[in-house]
């Protein structure tokens, strides 16, 4: 009985910690891909100064102030503007000609992190003359990230990469038209947010958004296990208009999803899918 290996015990502690996080704070990481959630919890435990996951759980339950700190370890805020420029080129050349036929449009950026992907899409739509008829919904579970997205301020030294990406995406303007540089920061123009609604929304626990024409959800579902990915893709399917578009991250696909049959490959290399009409 006492011979349970340390690793099994640790797996149990992690399970209990995630259950506590869900039951007490309603953040549901129970079905995130195990291998990487384990790594992140391990870093959190070390950096937050707890010897065991059980002690971390105790601390978390009795001290709500620890929650944001833990969440910052559990969600990954790695992003870029026009990340994978060919994805944005695919949208520009293949998807926007279809969207142009609608009088009004809704775009959902799911897991928008600190806003890099959102601003990329708004700039793309502006360049293509579609911004005025579009409403953008930008959602994430990390409130700090949403606040930063809403502020639209980035370190100036990131602009070189963002500018190069923008150009490769077929950009028709200069990225510097959209921000002012001050004190090492690039402050993006508030007019880019005119048509944007930010909200706290979880792909794990929250409901559908109605009648989207394009959903961009990149590098979010790689953190989910297969059943949870299926839930999220089902949510996207139900949120899209007939023939609406779904864009995923460069290394994600619907190939292993239960809902694969509900979508067509639209721009195969860019992981852009179209919801079937029926």
């Amino acid at each position: 009985m006492s011979d349970v290996p340390e690793s099994k015990l640790e797996a149990l502690e992690i399970k209990l910690l995630l259950e506590a996080l869900f039951q007490h704070y309603h953040y549901d990481f129970r079905n995130y891909a195990q291998a990487s959630i384990k790594r992140r919890l391990n870093r959190a435990r070390e950096q937050m100064g707890f010897a065991t996951y059980s002690q971390l759980q105790d601390g978390l339950l009795h001290n709500p102030a620890l929650l944001p700190h833990l969440l910052s370890f559990l969600t990954i805020q790695v992003s870029e503007m026009f990340r994978d420029p060919s994805y944005f080129l695919g949208l520009r050349e293949k998807v926007l000609p279809h969207l142009r036929t609608y009088p009004s449009l809704k775009v959902w950026v799911a897991g928008c992190s600190e806003g890099e992907e959102l601003y990329s899409l708004v700039i793309l739509f502006r360049e293509e003359g579609l911004e005025d008829r579009t409403l953008f919904y930008a959602t994430d579970i990390n409130q700090e990230a949403l606040d930063k997205a809403n502020a639209g301020i980035y370190a100036l030294d990131r602009m070189q990469l963002f500018t190069a990406n923008h150009r490769k995406s077929g950009g028709k303007s200069s990225l510097s038209d959209y921000y002012t540089a001050a004190y090492g920061r690039a402050v993006f123009d508030r007019s880019l947010r005119q048509r944007v609604v930010f909200s706290d929304h979880s792909l794990v626990t929250d409901a559908v958004f109605a009648e989207m024409h394009l959903i961009s959800c990149r590098n979010v579902m790689i953190y989910f296990d297969r059943p949870l990915q299926d839930r999220a893709v089902g949510l996207f399917k139900d949120s899209l208009t007939r023939k609406g578009f779904l864009g995923l991250g460069a290394k994600e696909s619907l190939r292993f999803s239960n809902h694969a049959g509900a979508f067509l490959d639209f721009v195969k290399d860019e992981k852009i899918y179209q919801r079937r009409a029926e």
């Binding site: 891909a33 291998a35 990487s36 992140r40 790695v78 790689i222 953190y223």
Partner: peptide, 20 residues
């Protein structure tokens, strides 16, 4: 793939991550 960590899950599928 370049730019992504590669991990093996307990159910012996592969998963990718963007972690630092």
């Amino acid at each position: 793939p370049p730019g992504y960590h590669l991990l093996v899950e307990m159910d012996r599928t592969l998963s990718l991550s963007n972690d630092e």
